[in-house]
Protein backbone atom coordinates (compact mmCIF):
# COMPACT_ATOMS: atom_id res chain seq x y z
CA UNK A 1 0.00 0.00 0.00
CA UNK A 2 2.77 2.45 0.95
CA UNK A 3 4.96 1.24 -1.92
CA UNK A 4 1.96 1.71 -4.20
CA UNK A 5 1.45 5.30 -3.06
CA UNK A 6 5.16 6.04 -3.58
CA UNK A 7 4.87 4.85 -7.16
CA UNK A 8 1.78 7.05 -7.60
CA UNK A 9 3.65 10.04 -6.19
CA UNK A 10 6.72 9.58 -8.37
CA UNK A 11 4.57 9.07 -11.44
CA UNK A 12 2.59 12.28 -10.90
CA UNK A 13 5.73 14.17 -9.83
CA UNK A 14 7.43 13.14 -13.06
CA UNK A 15 4.70 14.70 -15.19
CA UNK A 16 4.79 17.88 -13.11
CA UNK A 17 8.57 17.96 -13.45
CA UNK A 18 8.36 17.76 -17.26
CA UNK A 19 5.84 20.60 -17.30
CA UNK A 20 7.72 22.79 -14.85
CA UNK A 21 10.91 22.22 -16.81
CA UNK A 22 9.17 23.39 -19.97
CA UNK A 23 8.18 26.63 -18.25
CA UNK A 24 11.59 27.06 -16.66
CA UNK A 25 13.58 26.65 -19.89
CA UNK A 26 11.73 29.52 -21.51
CA UNK A 27 11.74 31.65 -18.38
CA UNK A 28 15.45 31.22 -17.80
CA UNK A 29 16.20 32.66 -21.23
CA UNK A 30 13.43 35.11 -22.13
CA UNK A 31 12.05 36.01 -18.71
CA UNK A 32 8.59 34.90 -19.84
CA UNK A 33 6.25 32.68 -17.87
CA UNK A 34 4.40 31.11 -20.73
CA UNK A 35 0.86 30.49 -19.52
CA UNK A 36 0.03 29.22 -22.99
CA UNK A 37 2.23 26.21 -22.20
CA UNK A 38 -0.91 24.30 -21.25
CA UNK A 39 -2.43 24.94 -24.67
CA UNK A 40 0.64 23.34 -26.26
CA UNK A 41 -0.38 20.24 -24.32
CA UNK A 42 -3.96 20.55 -25.52
CA UNK A 43 -2.73 20.90 -29.09
CA UNK A 44 -0.57 17.79 -28.76
CA UNK A 45 -3.56 15.97 -27.31
CA UNK A 46 -5.74 16.88 -30.29
CA UNK A 47 -2.90 15.97 -32.67
CA UNK A 48 -2.76 12.53 -31.04
CA UNK A 49 -6.51 12.15 -31.40
CA UNK A 50 -6.44 13.24 -35.04
CA UNK A 51 -3.57 10.88 -35.86
CA UNK A 52 -5.39 7.97 -34.23
CA UNK A 53 -8.61 8.82 -36.06
CA UNK A 54 -6.66 8.96 -39.32
CA UNK A 55 -5.58 5.40 -38.58
CA UNK A 56 -1.88 5.97 -37.81
CA UNK A 57 -0.30 3.24 -35.68
CA UNK A 58 -0.01 4.29 -32.04
CA UNK A 59 3.77 4.98 -31.93
CA UNK A 60 3.54 7.11 -35.10
CA UNK A 61 0.59 9.02 -33.63
CA UNK A 62 2.57 9.77 -30.48
CA UNK A 63 5.51 10.96 -32.59
CA UNK A 64 3.25 13.22 -34.65
CA UNK A 65 1.61 14.60 -31.50
CA UNK A 66 4.87 15.41 -29.73
CA UNK A 67 6.30 17.03 -32.88
CA UNK A 68 3.13 19.10 -33.20
CA UNK A 69 3.64 20.38 -29.65
CA UNK A 70 7.25 21.31 -30.42
CA UNK A 71 6.45 23.02 -33.72
CA UNK A 72 3.51 24.86 -32.20
CA UNK A 73 5.80 26.20 -29.49
CA UNK A 74 8.22 27.53 -32.10
CA UNK A 75 5.34 29.03 -34.08
CA UNK A 76 3.96 30.60 -30.92
CA UNK A 77 7.31 32.27 -30.26
CA UNK A 78 7.61 33.46 -33.85
CA UNK A 79 4.09 34.88 -34.05
CA UNK A 80 3.24 36.08 -30.58
CA UNK A 81 6.38 36.52 -28.52
CA UNK A 82 9.06 37.67 -30.96
CA UNK A 83 7.28 40.97 -31.66
CA UNK A 84 7.21 41.48 -27.89
CA UNK A 85 10.91 40.79 -27.38
CA UNK A 86 12.45 43.18 -24.88
CA UNK A 87 9.06 44.13 -23.49
CA UNK A 88 8.50 44.17 -19.75
CA UNK A 89 7.77 41.00 -17.80
CA UNK A 90 4.18 42.16 -17.34
CA UNK A 91 3.60 42.66 -21.06
CA UNK A 92 5.05 39.25 -21.83
CA UNK A 93 2.88 37.67 -19.16
CA UNK A 94 -0.26 39.30 -20.53
CA UNK A 95 0.68 38.25 -24.05
CA UNK A 96 0.92 34.64 -22.90
CA UNK A 97 -2.49 34.90 -21.23
CA UNK A 98 -3.91 36.32 -24.45
CA UNK A 99 -2.43 33.49 -26.53
CA UNK A 100 -3.80 30.98 -24.03
CA UNK A 101 -7.36 32.39 -24.06
CA UNK A 102 -7.34 32.72 -27.82
CA UNK A 103 -6.30 29.11 -28.33
CA UNK A 104 -8.89 27.87 -25.84
CA UNK A 105 -11.67 29.61 -27.73
CA UNK A 106 -10.33 28.32 -31.05
CA UNK A 107 -10.36 24.76 -29.65
CA UNK A 108 -13.86 25.18 -28.23
CA UNK A 109 -15.43 26.67 -31.32
CA UNK A 110 -13.27 25.00 -33.94
CA UNK A 111 -13.25 21.46 -32.56
CA UNK A 112 -15.83 20.96 -29.82
CA UNK A 113 -16.58 22.22 -26.33
CA UNK A 114 -17.09 18.59 -25.37
CA UNK A 115 -14.13 16.46 -24.30
CA UNK A 116 -13.15 13.94 -26.95
CA UNK A 117 -12.43 10.39 -25.86
CA UNK A 118 -8.98 9.10 -26.81
CA UNK A 119 -8.89 5.34 -27.01
CA UNK A 120 -5.55 4.33 -25.56
CA UNK A 121 -4.28 0.88 -26.56
CA UNK A 122 -5.50 -1.82 -24.20
CA UNK A 123 -2.07 -2.67 -22.84
CA UNK A 124 -1.74 0.81 -21.40
CA UNK A 125 -4.63 0.26 -18.99
CA UNK A 126 -3.19 -3.07 -17.93
CA UNK A 127 -1.24 -3.78 -14.79
CA UNK A 128 1.30 -6.29 -13.65
CA UNK A 129 1.70 -7.91 -10.26
CA UNK A 130 4.94 -7.53 -8.41
CA UNK A 131 5.03 -9.49 -5.19
CA UNK A 132 1.79 -8.65 -3.44
CA UNK A 133 1.12 -5.31 -5.08
CA UNK A 134 0.11 -4.46 -8.61
CA UNK A 135 1.69 -1.69 -10.64
CA UNK A 136 -0.27 -0.09 -13.46
CA UNK A 137 1.40 0.02 -16.85
CA UNK A 138 0.38 3.71 -17.20
CA UNK A 139 2.22 4.98 -14.10
CA UNK A 140 5.26 2.85 -14.95
CA UNK A 141 5.47 4.31 -18.45
CA UNK A 142 5.00 7.74 -16.95
CA UNK A 143 7.97 7.24 -14.60
CA UNK A 144 10.22 5.80 -17.31
CA UNK A 145 9.39 8.50 -19.88
CA UNK A 146 9.89 11.32 -17.37
CA UNK A 147 13.25 9.89 -16.30
CA UNK A 148 14.45 9.39 -19.88
CA UNK A 149 13.35 12.88 -20.90
CA UNK A 150 15.13 14.46 -17.95
CA UNK A 151 18.33 12.54 -18.68
CA UNK A 152 18.20 13.37 -22.40
CA UNK A 153 17.70 17.04 -21.65
CA UNK A 154 20.58 17.02 -19.20
CA UNK A 155 22.88 15.46 -21.82
CA UNK A 156 21.76 17.97 -24.42
CA UNK A 157 22.41 20.93 -22.14
CA UNK A 158 25.79 19.62 -20.93
CA UNK A 159 27.28 18.18 -24.10
CA UNK A 160 26.02 20.11 -27.13
CA UNK A 161 27.14 23.57 -28.20
CA UNK A 162 23.58 24.87 -28.37
CA UNK A 163 22.92 23.39 -24.94
CA UNK A 164 25.96 25.07 -23.49
CA UNK A 165 24.95 28.34 -25.12
CA UNK A 166 21.51 28.00 -23.58
CA UNK A 167 22.89 27.44 -20.13
CA UNK A 168 25.13 30.44 -20.61
CA UNK A 169 22.20 32.50 -21.91
CA UNK A 170 20.26 31.67 -18.78
CA UNK A 171 23.06 33.20 -16.74
CA UNK A 172 23.83 36.19 -18.92
CA UNK A 173 22.19 36.56 -22.28
CA UNK A 174 24.08 39.70 -23.28
CA UNK A 175 27.47 38.05 -22.93
CA UNK A 176 26.30 35.08 -25.00
CA UNK A 177 25.22 37.43 -27.77
CA UNK A 178 28.60 39.18 -27.60
CA UNK A 179 30.16 35.77 -28.25
CA UNK A 180 28.43 35.81 -31.62
CA UNK A 181 25.66 33.36 -30.90
CA UNK A 182 22.39 34.46 -32.56
CA UNK A 183 19.75 35.27 -29.95
CA UNK A 184 16.87 34.10 -32.12
CA UNK A 185 18.34 30.64 -32.44
CA UNK A 186 18.78 30.27 -28.69
CA UNK A 187 15.24 31.48 -28.03
CA UNK A 188 13.72 29.31 -30.75
CA UNK A 189 15.55 26.28 -29.34
CA UNK A 190 14.27 27.09 -25.86
CA UNK A 191 10.70 27.14 -27.16
CA UNK A 192 11.28 23.98 -29.19
CA UNK A 193 12.48 22.16 -26.08
CA UNK A 194 9.61 23.47 -24.00
CA UNK A 195 7.17 22.37 -26.72
CA UNK A 196 8.76 18.91 -26.79
CA UNK A 197 8.39 18.64 -23.02
CA UNK A 198 4.78 19.86 -23.23
CA UNK A 199 4.08 17.28 -25.94
CA UNK A 200 5.59 14.46 -23.87
CA UNK A 201 3.73 15.57 -20.76
CA UNK A 202 0.52 15.74 -22.79
CA UNK A 203 0.95 12.12 -23.87
CA UNK A 204 1.37 10.97 -20.27
CA UNK A 205 -1.52 13.21 -19.18
CA UNK A 206 -3.88 11.93 -21.87
CA UNK A 207 -2.86 8.32 -21.23
CA UNK A 208 -4.06 8.74 -17.66
CA UNK A 209 -7.20 10.71 -18.50
CA UNK A 210 -8.50 9.05 -21.67
CA UNK A 211 -9.89 12.29 -23.08
CA UNK A 212 -8.80 15.66 -24.46
CA UNK A 213 -10.80 18.83 -23.99
CA UNK A 214 -10.26 22.49 -24.84
CA UNK A 215 -9.59 23.48 -21.23
CA UNK A 216 -7.32 20.57 -20.30
CA UNK A 217 -4.19 22.76 -20.31
CA UNK A 218 -5.26 24.98 -17.43
CA UNK A 219 -4.64 22.72 -14.43
CA UNK A 220 -1.27 21.39 -15.60
CA UNK A 221 0.16 24.82 -16.37
CA UNK A 222 -0.96 26.04 -12.96
CA UNK A 223 0.69 23.08 -11.25
CA UNK A 224 3.81 23.57 -13.35
CA UNK A 225 3.92 27.23 -12.38
CA UNK A 226 3.65 26.34 -8.69
CA UNK A 227 6.34 23.69 -9.11
CA UNK A 228 8.64 26.11 -10.93
CA UNK A 229 8.19 28.80 -8.28
CA UNK A 230 8.81 26.39 -5.41
CA UNK A 231 11.87 25.03 -7.17
CA UNK A 232 13.24 28.49 -7.93
CA UNK A 233 12.04 30.37 -10.99
CA UNK A 234 14.41 30.00 -13.90
CA UNK A 235 16.37 27.17 -12.33
CA UNK A 236 16.14 23.92 -14.27
CA UNK A 237 17.12 21.53 -11.47
CA UNK A 238 14.78 23.57 -9.27
CA UNK A 239 11.86 22.99 -11.63
CA UNK A 240 12.44 19.25 -11.53
CA UNK A 241 12.73 19.23 -7.74
CA UNK A 242 9.62 21.42 -7.44
CA UNK A 243 7.64 19.13 -9.75
CA UNK A 244 8.49 16.00 -7.80
CA UNK A 245 7.89 17.74 -4.47
CA UNK A 246 4.44 18.93 -5.59
CA UNK A 247 3.47 15.50 -6.94
CA UNK A 248 4.60 13.74 -3.77
CA UNK A 249 2.81 16.18 -1.44
CA UNK A 250 -0.42 15.93 -3.45
CA UNK A 251 -0.49 12.14 -3.48
CA UNK A 252 0.51 11.83 0.17
CA UNK A 253 -2.21 14.26 1.27
CA UNK A 254 -4.81 12.52 -0.89
CA UNK A 255 -3.79 9.17 0.56
CA UNK A 256 -3.65 10.14 4.21
CA UNK A 257 -6.08 13.01 4.88
CA UNK A 258 -9.25 11.94 6.67
CA UNK A 259 -12.44 12.40 4.64
CA UNK A 260 -13.59 15.53 6.45
CA UNK A 261 -10.40 17.47 5.68
CA UNK A 262 -9.75 16.05 2.21
CA UNK A 263 -11.58 18.84 0.37
CA UNK A 264 -9.03 21.30 1.77
CA UNK A 265 -6.19 19.40 0.11
CA UNK A 266 -5.35 22.11 -2.41
CA UNK A 267 -5.44 24.76 0.30
CA UNK A 268 -3.01 22.70 2.38
CA UNK A 269 -0.70 22.16 -0.60
CA UNK A 270 -0.63 25.89 -1.36
CA UNK A 271 -0.01 26.71 2.32
CA UNK A 272 2.95 24.35 2.10
CA UNK A 273 4.18 26.27 -0.93
CA UNK A 274 3.96 29.53 1.02
CA UNK A 275 5.85 27.94 3.90
CA UNK A 276 8.64 26.79 1.56
CA UNK A 277 8.88 30.27 0.05
CA UNK A 278 9.02 31.90 3.50
CA UNK A 279 12.04 29.77 4.38
CA UNK A 280 13.63 29.91 0.92
CA UNK A 281 12.30 32.97 -0.90
CA UNK A 282 14.34 32.14 -4.03
CA UNK A 283 13.00 28.58 -4.15
CA UNK A 284 14.53 25.22 -3.33
CA UNK A 285 17.37 25.48 -5.85
CA UNK A 286 17.60 29.14 -6.84
CA UNK A 287 18.54 30.20 -10.37
CA UNK A 288 22.19 31.11 -10.75
CA UNK A 289 21.44 34.79 -11.16
CA UNK A 290 18.42 36.90 -10.48
CA UNK A 291 16.26 37.55 -13.55
CA UNK A 292 16.31 40.81 -15.39
CA UNK A 293 12.98 42.45 -15.02
Amino acid sequence: MIAQQIINAVSLGGVYALLALGLAIVFSIVGLINFAHGELMTLSGYALLASLVLGFPFPVAVLVAVSCGALAAVAMERIAFRPMRGASVTSLLLTSFAVSSLLKVVFQNGISARPQAVAMPGWMTGSFSFGDFTIGVGPSISIVVSALALIALEIFLRRSVTGTAMRAAAEDFDVVRLMGIPASRIIATAFLLSGLLAGLAAMLWVAQRASVDPLMGFTPVLKAFIAAVVGGLGSLPGAVAGGFLLGIIEVLLQATLPGAIAPYRDAIVLSGVIAVLLVRPQGLIPAVRAQRS
Partner: peptide
Protein backbone atom coordinates in the same frame (compact mmCIF):
# COMPACT_ATOMS: atom_id res chain seq x y z
CA UNK B 1 -5.29 15.07 -12.87
CA UNK B 2 -4.55 12.11 -10.73
CA UNK B 3 -6.82 9.63 -8.99
CA UNK B 4 -4.10 7.13 -8.11
CA UNK B 5 -4.06 7.87 -4.37
CA UNK B 6 -7.84 7.51 -4.11
CA UNK B 7 -7.76 4.32 -6.13
CA UNK B 8 -5.03 2.86 -3.95
Amino acid sequence: PDFSAEIT
